[in-house]
């Protein structure tokens, strides 16, 4: 399981004027892996992720996502990835079912498939009671779980999660991570950014981004060993303290 590469970047950079938001990052992510993409605010995580999703064009460097080139094959990439942004991304004025149907539809799923998936999804999330309700009436934790499930509805190879659990309690976050593990078990690669270091512990491997560069990349256990710290929290402090950029 750990040998098939689904994300590969080489010296990938993004400059805004003279400012290098992302500065020559190189890494690989394997199939079925939960890859934690850590860094302080303003370190360049979101910019990097937007490039990988085909939302932003790199300034230089190479990258391939699910075997497709990040410059020339963005439309092919989009068919094989899911994305959930930190800005909440479902339609609040549509119901739970309508959102599932819409996103299933635009990814080209057949109507029968959408129908059966909708039923099993609503069942699994325990949302049968609220399936006809507008999404805006749901609690934030439910919205996030629904948004994640919708993002992987079309069985993408990779799902990108940009701070998916902001603003919810630890129990809800735990439940969210159960969904992530389920997805990973089904072979979906999970690429996730987070500020919660307990979540970093859940990842198979994590990378640490400081000032647009990747300063460390390993399993949480290995990182703690290398930096001789007890927790990921401490590791994060050690690395992020050297940052020159002001957090935004």
């Amino acid at each position: 399981m750990r040998n098939e590469i689904v994300i590969k970047t080489q010296n990938l950079s993004k400059h805004f004027g003279s400012f290098a938001a992302v500065d020559q990052i190189s890494f690989e992510v394997y199939k079925g892996e939960i890859f934690g993409f850590l860094g302080a605010n303003g370190a360049g995580k979101t910019t990097a992720m937007r490039m990988l999703c085909g939302l932003s064009l790199p300034t230089s460097g190479q990258a391939s996502i699910a075997g497709f080139d990040i410059y020339r094959q963005t439309e092919s990439i989009k068919k094989h990835i899911g994305y959930m942004s930190q800005k909440f991304s479902l339609y609040e004025d549509l119901t739970v079912i309508e959102n599932i149907r819409f996103f299933g539809g635009i990814y080209g799923l057949a109507p029968e498939v959408i129908k059966s998936k909708t039923e099993s999804l609503v069942e699994r999330l325990g949302m049968s009671q609220v399936k006809m309700q507008l999404v805006k009436s749901l609690p934030l934790g439910w919205k996030q779980k629904l948004a994640f499930s919708v993002a992987i509805l079309h069985q993408p190879q990779i799902v990108f999660l940009d701070e998916p659990t902001g603003g919810v309690d630890p129990i809800t976050r735990r439940q969210f991570w159960d969904l992530i593990y389920q997805a990973a078990d089904e072979g979906i690669t999970v690429f996730v950014t987070t500020h919660y270091m307990d979540e970093a512990e859940y990842c198979h491997r994590v990378s640490m981004m400081v000032d647009g560069q990747i300063k460390a990349l390993d399993t949480p256990a290995q990182l703690k060993k290398i930096y001789n710290e007890d927790s990921m929290d401490e590791v994060f402090y050690r690395l992020a303290r050297g940052a020159k950029r002001q957090a935004d």
Binding site: L55, K78, S85, I106
Partner: peptide, 14 residues
């Protein structure tokens, strides 16, 4: 403003 357009832009919608 709502950010839903991002979700459209990462999809294969032309």
């Amino acid at each position: 403003e709502l950010g839903t357009i991002e979700q459209i832009n990462v999809s294969p919608i032309k």
